[in-house]
Nucleic acid binder design. Structure first.
Lengths: 194, 194
DNA sequence: TCGAAGTTTCAGTAATTTCTGAAATTTCAA
DNA sequence: TTGAAATTTCAGAAATTACTGAAACTTCGA
């Protein structure tokens, strides 16, 4: 592997973390390399920089394309494919969230839906189904929130993030204003500060 | 495996999904089984229900304890450990978020911090470091938000979720009120509706 | 202290996943 | 068409991860 030390640490780390993130070492390394490269790279350049086989690079790039995490570029008068990652890191985040949801959550929701359609035959099944319904409900709340928030433009999303838990204070303010306008007070207590 | 069909589908699904979720098949199956069981189970009961070796159960339970995903219970006059999952599914969600952050994000932030402390020696390194700084900054925003909202009580968190992107409309309302109070108008356009 | 019940450890094996090199396929200019 | 460049496929090898059974350990009552 022939890389500047800074880049090398980053690439090796992504390789090691790969398994925790649901991708394999090579895929992680290639992604890291593309992410920190200012110019798009072709497969043979990746082979050279990472010291892995051509076929492994080919398969890993295919997998990254499956995740929509890489962008193809072409140079004039050059048949080779060149690869980069999107410049906009928020876009990368959105893609990652979408793809992980697709792989890690959607299949479970499908299975839960199927199971919840069946009628339980005994007490144990009834209890199990109730628990699964709880799980289904919670995930549904989370994914509804996600579907809602993912539509936001980046700067609004950033505002929302920066606000964090303070939003609840805002909510209380609104409650007060609204109930004042309606001539009555909400029952909520209101003691929190900074 | 001797289980009601509904429970069996659920358990097998969790086993299959395990690899995508960063746990192995057995760990996934055991967790699923405990989650849908109304009573705590001891290791031998798990062996029997899932048809796997005693030692595998022991190691997998240990791993689940490492994730803080199981609760130990004891019966009077019985030395055996019995295991369950917490009843409160929001608590499970919090634990899961915390542990995944610890395993999937924190190590990367440590590596990024270390790399960003070094001085780049050339143009390529400089570019790479800038990209890493972008990544660091984004993850920092996300984790700050997370640290903030994880403090919320469950019902407030649920309110926040239900609100979703509508929060931005609330923000605009507040902007209007505040700027009205200060005797001037914000520059933001305001055309969005339901 | 003994021994029975329960649990964990660990070396070896099984299963799975990743990676490679060689062969096959695609693409495109001449 | 032909063939050179680029890419993909895939069977098997290599590496990694998961699982088991046997032995070791722990706990606690008698």
């Amino acid at each position: 592997m022939e890389l500047p030390p800074i880049v090398q640490s980053f690439v090796l780390h992504f390789g090691e973390m790969g398994s925790r993130w649901g991708i394999n070492r090579t895929v992680g390394q290639i992604y890291a390399l593309l992410y920190v490269s200012s110019e798009p790279l072709c497969a043979d350049q990746i082979v050279e920089k990472l010291g892995i086989s051509r076929s492994n690079v080919s398969m890993s790039l295919r997998e990254l394309q499956g995740w929509n995490l890489v962008v193809l570029k072409h140079l004039p008068d050059d048949r080779r494919d060149f690869f980069t990652t999107p410049d906009d890191i928020w876009q990368i985040l959105r893609t990652l969230a979408e793809e992980r949801k697709k792989r890690e959550i959607d299949p479970t929701m499908t299975v839960l839906r199927e199971i919840l359609m069946q009628s339980p035959t005994g007490e144990a099944e009834r209890y199990a189904q109730d628990r699964m319904a709880d799980m289904y409900g919670l995930i549904e709340q989370l994914t509804n929130w996600y579907d809602d928030v993912k539509q936001l433009e980046t700067d609004r999303l950033a505002t929302l993030l920066a606000l964090g838990a303070k939003v609840t204070r805002l909510l209380e303010t609104k409650d007060r204003i609204v109930s004042f306008g309606r001539g009555r007070h909400s029952g909520k207590k209101d003691g929190e500060s900074a």
